[in-house]
């Protein structure tokens, strides 16, 4: 087996070394675990009287999809939305629908944008998160809550500011997932 890039500095950062290789299970599981655990955040110490926390599971999904386009399959929105629905308090099925629509929508936007950089990613994420919050609010109002779009403005602004920070967290997790943890025999 060719040791690709071992001799060149700065490249082949994630190739295998002597007796150590990245683990495929870790590499595939980290994004899924990240998004699923972010859905658990309502269990956090914040007991909110108003919607204040941005939808972190959705933001992580958008982040992983924008930063690593091929890694989450196109149908990943459905199971991750299901896990989010169990904890988020939205009507059951709204997460499945909205996460799946977001993944399909991002696939279409991918082909439409000509340049991709930090600002384009942030803009796309803002638009998608805004649409998600609006639709989720309408669905929640349909299920018995109050319809008052002004309620989600603080949440949307917080999500807008927080997104680059989340992409940094995703970058750290990306390094983690390719860490050479497997000991070759």
């Amino acid at each position: 087996m060719a040791l690709i890039g071992d001799r060149l500095p700065g490249s082949g950062l994630f190739a295998r070394r002597i007796n150590r290789a990245p683990s495929t299970m870790l590499a595939t599981a980290v994004p899924w675990l990240n998004i699923a655990l972010a859905s658990l955040l309502p269990m956090s110490p914040v007991i909110a009287s108003a919607p204040v926390l941005p939808p972190l599971a959705f933001m992580f999904l958008i982040g992983w999809r924008l930063l690593r386009p091929g890694m989450l399959p196109l149908w990943a929105g459905a199971p991750l939305g299901l896990i989010d629905d169990l904890y988020s308090g939205q009507p059951f099925g709204s997460g499945v629908l909205l996460f799946s629509l977001a993944m399909i929508g991002l696939e279409q936007i991918d082909g439409w944008l000509r340049w991709r950089g930090f600002w384009q990613d942030w803009l796309v994420a803002t638009v998608v998160i805004g649409a998600y919050l609006m639709l989720a609010h309408f669905i929640a109002a349909f299920a018995g809550g109050t319809l008052n779009p002004v309620l989600i403005v603080p949440q949307f602004l917080l999500a807008f500011i927080l997104f680059p920070l989340l992409t940094r967290v995703i970058a750290i997790l990306d390094l983690l997932r390719l860490a050479r943890v497997k000991v070759l025999a």
Partner: peptide, 18 residues
């Protein structure tokens, strides 16, 4: 196909739960 059927499943679940 898988993604759109996931979205359709979500729509069905949503209607049922509403």
């Amino acid at each position: 196909v898988a993604a759109i059927s996931g979205a359709a499943l979500g729509l069905v679940l949503l209607i049922v739960s509403l």
